[in-house]
């Protein structure tokens, strides 16, 4: 029974993946391309930056980068919380 459910789920997901691969647009032709010309043309005169990717990352979509940095910070806080140096076990030494 479990195996039948697993095979069924695999077949459904595989069918969806095949469907997505068949209906994929050709490489280099996205559906929405209204903002592309703006980013490509405006990043150099407005930001004085040669690398358009960096201009998008740190100026136009800066809030996303801020979220990424915050996620990394909270990951470090979680690691420090889990793996912090615990106090001495018991109190008999003190």
């Amino acid at each position: 029974m479990k195996k039948a459910i697993a095979i069924l789920a695999f077949l459904i997901i595989f069918a969806f993946l095949i469907l997505g691969a068949v209906e994929m647009r050709p490489f280099g032709e996205p559906e929405q391309e209204d903002m592309d010309d703006y980013f490509l043309g405006d990043s150099q005169p407005h930001n004085q930056v040669n690398n358009v990717v960096t201009a998008v990352l740190f100026d136009y979509r800066g809030l996303d980068t801020l979220g990424e940095a915050t996620i990394l910070f909270s990951a470090v806080v979680g690691v420090l919380t889990v793996l912090r140096e615990t106090q001495k076990k018991g109190g008999e030494d003190v």
């Binding site: 930001n47 004085q48 930056v49 040669n50 960096t54 201009a55 740190f58 100026d59 800066g62 980068t65 940095a69 990394l72 910070f73 990951a75 470090v76």
Partner: peptide, 20 residues
Amino acid sequence: TGGTVTLMNLAVGIEVSAAL
């Protein structure tokens, strides 16, 4: 060149290297 983009690269570089 770059204005604040260069400075933000520096800040994010410091943060990411120290965090990892």
